[in-house]
Design a protein around this nucleic acid. Structure first.
Lengths: 344, 344
DNA sequence: TTTGCCAAGTAAATCGTTTTATCTCAGACA
DNA sequence: TGTCTGAGATAAAACGATTTACTTGGCAAA
């Protein structure tokens, strides 16, 4: 493989000069510049990033730690990150944790060993402990989608409280008084989820509605399967809800699927509203009404903040909160106490 | 940052000995071994992968080049790759091309500069030219999801021909005689798509059915939006199809969405079958019948083959073809010439 | 006792860069 | 004329590991 030395020999200059030409960080006379460039082209020289990184003791690489890149929500966040990185000449290393703390820890170690310039952690469920002091000293970290309570670190999240508020308000506006909520099973550990639930409870209370614990499901995982089962539980209650607010779109899909399979018409018999606005939400039958999170933007912002840190920005850790947006489609409608529901 | 030298000093041995302990590639007496390990632990030493890689002139990193990691199909393939890499101590660098040849080329260059151990290219649409001689000399490449005609390189694909055959046969079995096919707009460039179309045409011919060009759409891109539009075109024909075979599930979603929005009942009025079996197919309303590709397995196999190559396996490039599988759900049914369709 | 060999370790070269310290040569100035 | 200055280039020292080639000491065979 051709090295900088070969180039230097070919151009009849020292390797230092070649390095200068490559990095354009000091004056090199036009003539030598030209000779060096020609030599580089002739030899098809390609800089060895390994050597460069070693000497500079930093690599133009970022790590992204994510529960599951197969989940449409995370996939879009990751995509935003990757895009910003590419624009800035950084590569990204993809690390799926599958919510496994050991895997997450192993990845963090590997990233540190590879001297990545920084790490973005998307929805750090399993890294509570890991993320304390020892790690943070080594390289900048930005957390996306979720705050880590008590940890001073840059964060980018969306406004989960307001998002939930928007969802409930929309349902109230349509006349719904019994609203089922599929919170999911991360209520204990995730601020994100807590915020959403707070938004729900506050908004219901403000409307003077009682909170019926029986309508709040916290068992489901955040998949369609989970949503399906949660719907089964909620809709089998003696006094079932006329609307269900699913804490993510996948759950919403599951709820709609359950309804479809059991002859419950959406939105006539049951309104369903999701959260995230993943791409496919618009193509469900009926199209899913949902609270849009700026997923892509979440990733972009996280990456931008991280790059600023890497380039030496010093200021106290910031938390950026991006707005959510209600997207009304077909899965919600004016409440209607149809016999179909009771008959079920 | 603590280096191997610090460890050597602390343990009172040479750095070579420390290196031996780390790599376990030569005998070190139990006593020194212990002293070194203690020093490593005491100092919280972490090997500098940059230095190691430079010296070894290889990095424990793979590149994965993919059109769009946000697409559920590609996301699952990528996931398979990542999993195998993790198991083998490799990291993966994620490169989305967005089908942009320049971006792809830029990524390939960056990967080469970083001396990745190898590259997996998923569905290399835009790299035809790039992938010729110059690149391949540098590092092993495995291509997934798609063959590159004339290029001697390891490949893992699924059996697209048979998959298409299965789909059509299923529809024929249900009595459909007019089958619309949403081929998508990559027919010219992608062997994958050609194979599927071949499978369709052959199976129809074998059944003695005439091929109606008007029922074959090659305009759509591979998204729900594309499927929606294609459905619009196909179902507006004078003599519309009773079934539609979408060349991927996303297109299928679009077709079903169009049907839903226009009062066409699936499967009573129109059968729809997809290709890929992405996770959400099962949660569509109705659940989408589809041809399952072993997406995850595709990624795993590609990664496994690449790792073998990296570890010195020498044999002529192989092509691995994985089987597809018909998954019957609710979106296909016995044909029935209902008045609803004509009325539309 | 000497020789030779083996085991267990170390010193030093090496990987391919960046960067610091050094050199050289003009031209300016006293 | 000699000295100083600074531009423009180079030589050499990092960076932090791996690995080759060399040491050393002990033991068995001659």
């Amino acid at each position: 493989m051709t090295t900088i030395k070969d180039v230097a020999d070919q151009a009849g200059v020292s390797i230092a000069t070649v390095s200068r030409v490559l990095n354009q960080n000091r004056y090199v006379s036009p003539e030598l510049n030209e000779r060096v460039r020609k030599a580089i082209a002739d030899l098809h020289y390609e800089q060895n990033a390994l050597a460069r990184n070693l000497r500079r003791s930093e690599s133009l690489t970022l790590g992204i730690i994510i529960p599951d890149s197969t989940n449409p929500f995370f996939a879009e966040v990751a995509r935003g990150i990757e895009e910003v990185c590419f624009e800035n000449g950084y590569l990204v290393i993809l690390c799926n944790t599958s919510e496994d703390p050991e895997k997450a820890a192993a990845y963090l170690t590997a990233l540190r060993q590879n001297r990545v310039a920084g790490v973005i952690i998307v929805s750090p469920g399993e890294l509570q402990a890991e993320l304390r002091q020892p790690l943070r000293a080594k390289y900048p970290i930005v957390v996306a989608d979720r705050l880590l309570p008590g940890l001073q670190v840059d964060s980018v999240i969306s406004d989960n409280y307001v998002g939930a508020e928007q969802a409930i308000q929309h349902l109230l506006m349509l006349g719904h008084r019994r609203v089922g909520v599929v919170v999911g099973n991360h209520l204990e550990t995730r601020q994100t989820i807590k915020d959403r639930l707070d938004g729900v409870l506050m908004t219901l209370s403000a409307a003077g509605l009682p909170i019926d614990e029986a309508l709040i499901d916290t068992e489901s995982d955040y998949t369609p399967e989970g949503g399906y089962e949660a719907a089964c539980v909620l809709l089998d209650r003696p006094n079932p809800p006329t609307a269900i607010f699913a804490f993510n779109d996948l759950i919403g899909f599951g709820v709609m699927s359950y309804a479809y399979q059991h002859g419950i018409r959406v939105p006539q018999d049951l309104s369903v509203i999701g959260f995230d606005d993943i791409k496919l939400a618009a193509f469900m039958n009926p199209a899913l009404t949902t609270i849009a999170q700026p997923k892509y933007e979440l990733g972009r912002k996280a990456a931008e903040i991280l790059l600023e840190r890497i380039h030496g920005e010093v200021c106290p850790p910031q938390t950026m909160i991006l707005p959510t947006r209600l997207v009304v489609r077909q899965s919600t409608a004016q409440v209607c106490y149809a016999p179909a529901l009771n008959g079920h």
